[in-house]
């Protein structure tokens, strides 16, 4: 009887040790709209990135990509990294990351002709799923007005299962002022698309309230 108890205890311990731990790390993919007049908003994106760098920790992943005419491409990724497990190395990686984004923002001279947000979101989804992080976020820094190149097909459901999609700084267009329903319609459309893909949708326009952006 005693022996059986011992063996059972050991088995329980072994099994509990072997069970797959739930990942607690985060992965963030920041999409920056570089089309048209939105390029003027990029300095705000730097503010967001600084907040993210200060918030993310060892083991977390982060990538920044631009939204241009055809965003479903690795070439559009400006910088990506997974922070090292050692805090000192992670700090060094953050410095490098910041420098890369600063260079990118400084060198953006003119905006792209078209805006392929869906392609960027799809690319983000792929990247985030590859990281295997416990909490995945796509931050879209854009006015959400999609303008695809003729022939590009994006009218399908984007797989976003378990991914939080957060639209940041969704600026109102000139036409939105004439008919605000366009703006609301745009947000509704995106919410619907994200919901269909299995993701969670949020909009954060007040950049002073970033503290709850990627909180669990």
């Amino acid at each position: 009887m005693k022996r059986t108890l011992w063996i059972s205890g050991l088995l329980i311990l072994t099994l509990s040790a072997c069970s797959e731990p739930t990942p607690r790390n985060k992965a963030v993919y920041l999409l920056l709209d570089t089309s048209g007049t939105y390029t003027r908003e990029l300095d705000k994106a730097q503010h967001i990135m600084n907040y993210l760098l200060a918030t993310l920790d060892s083991g977390d992943s982060m990538a920044i990509a631009r939204i241009d005419s055809g965003s479903f491409s690795e070439k559009d990724i400006v910088a990506k990294t997974t922070f090292d497990l050692r805090p000192s190395t992670a700090n060094a990686q953050k410095r490098v990351f910041k420098r890369k984004l600063d260079d990118f923002v400084d060198n953006v001279s003119k905006g792209s002709a078209h805006t392929d947000i869906s392609g960027g979101v799809l690319q983000a989804s792929e990247y985030l799923n590859e990281t295997g992080a416990g909490h995945k976020y796509v931050l879209i820094f854009s006015d959400l007005e999609e303008d695809l190149v003729k022939g590009h097909i994006r009218d399908f459901t984007i797989p976003l299962s378990g991914i939080n999609v957060i639209a940041l700084n969704v600026t109102k267009l000139r036409s939105d002022n004439v008919n605000p329903r366009d703006y609301l319609q745009r947000l509704d459309n995106w919410e619907k698309r994200v919901g269909e893909g299995g993701g969670m949708w949020r909009v954060v326009n007040d950049l002073e309230r970033l503290d709850r952006l990627i909180s669990n």
Partner: peptide, 13 residues
């Protein structure tokens, strides 16, 4: 505790 994460990593549990 904090510098220990430099040795054994800061995320594993």
């Amino acid at each position: 505790a904090m510098p220990m994460s430099e040795m054994v990593g800061g995320t594993s549990q």
